[in-house]
Design a protein around this nucleic acid. Structure first.
Length: 298
DNA sequence: GTTGAGCGTT
């Protein structure tokens, strides 16, 4: 596909800027954010309905409307706009959106038959509502099921129903509970950095940045090497970081867990790593850390 | 090739 540009502006009748699309016709949120720092999405006025419409955003990738991008002017969305509106609103009414109670989280499924597959789980739990994630935990070497897994629903109601009863799955009684890996309502802790647990090896810093951008401006993404199944994401705004703590988010189909990044003692090293990252984007080499200290109390 | 309370390669 020839190089293509879409028109993006800060406000509807301001001078638009042309922003390049990808080869497949999508536009990366990061490309938008490169010109409009802090952007979390796009909207446009539908020529048909005359209403503002949101542009579909999946994992940091903006998808063109039905009839392509066309010549419309797209307007940048910022997370801060919502926050301001929210503050204005919940000064008087107690509107939710406040992030917390109504959101679903992963449920652990205990007692699965060895033979039960993810498809089996999905088929079974779909009778309770839309399922957005299932996992069967397996032995890495043998691939055998460990007899438990996880499920995540779209609707809070489905989750409640599923937790309130026992389940006959492939001939065994199973229980669904809130996993205890998740800490309850915790103290915010004024950090702009969050810990992202349960990362997979194929997640790149770019992809993480793409993903977390939708919540607010991302200032840093750090993935320890060699692979250690977690990452750190730093936001420009500590409130954004705080709002994500305790949540399970789904990146590339994988459920990751967000918690507050505990500073611990090895700050000097992190500062050195930051200092070593210069124009060429490469990282200065440091000897492997002898002891890593990221335990959560259990 | 086994097993049956647990907690997701922090």
């Amino acid at each position: 596909m020839a190089e293509m540009y879409i028109r993006v502006a800060e406000e509807e009748n301001e001078e638009p800027m042309e922003i390049p699309s990808e080869d497949d016709g999508t536009v990366l949120l990061s490309t938008v954010a490169a010109q409009f720092p802090g952007a979390c999405g796009l909207r446009y006025r539908s020529p048909v309905s005359q209403c503002m419409r949101g542009v579909r955003l999946v994992d940091g990738i903006l998808h063109a409307p039905e009839n392509g991008w066309g010549n419309l002017v797209y307007v940048v969305n910022y997370p801060k706009d919502n926050k301001r509106k929210m503050d204005e609103i919940d000064a008087s009414s107690a509107t939710k959106i406040k992030r917390g109670d109504q959101k679903t989280s992963d449920l652990i499924v205990l007692g699965l038959p060895w033979k039960t597959s993810e498809q089996d789980l999905k088929d079974y739990f779909s009778t309770f509502g839309e399922v957005i994630m299932v996992q069967v935990k397996r032995d890495v070497k043998t691939g055998n099921s460990k007899g438990f897994g996880f499920v995540r629903f779209t609707e809070w109601e489905s989750q409640g129903k599923v937790m309130s009863q026992r389940h006959m799955i492939d001939g065994r009684w199973c229980d669904c509970k809130l996993p205890n890996s998740k800490q309850g309502p915790d103290e915010p802790m004024r950090s702009r950095k969050v810990f992202v647990g349960r990362c997979t090896e194929d997640m790149t810093t770019d992809e993480l940045r793409q993903f977390f951008m939708q919540y607010g401006e991302v200032t840093d993404v750090f993935i320890p090497k060699p692979f250690r199944a977690f990452a750190f994401v730093t936001f420009a705004d500590d409130q954004v970081a705080a709002s994500l703590c305790g949540e399970d988010l789904i990146i590339k189909g994988i459920s990751v867990h967000i918690s507050n990044a505990e500073p611990k003692h090895n700050n000097t090293r992190q500062m050195m790593e930051r200092a070593g990252r210069f124009g060429n984007g490469s990282l200065c080499h440091l000897p492997p850390m002898s002891i890593c200290s990221h335990r959560t109390a259990r």
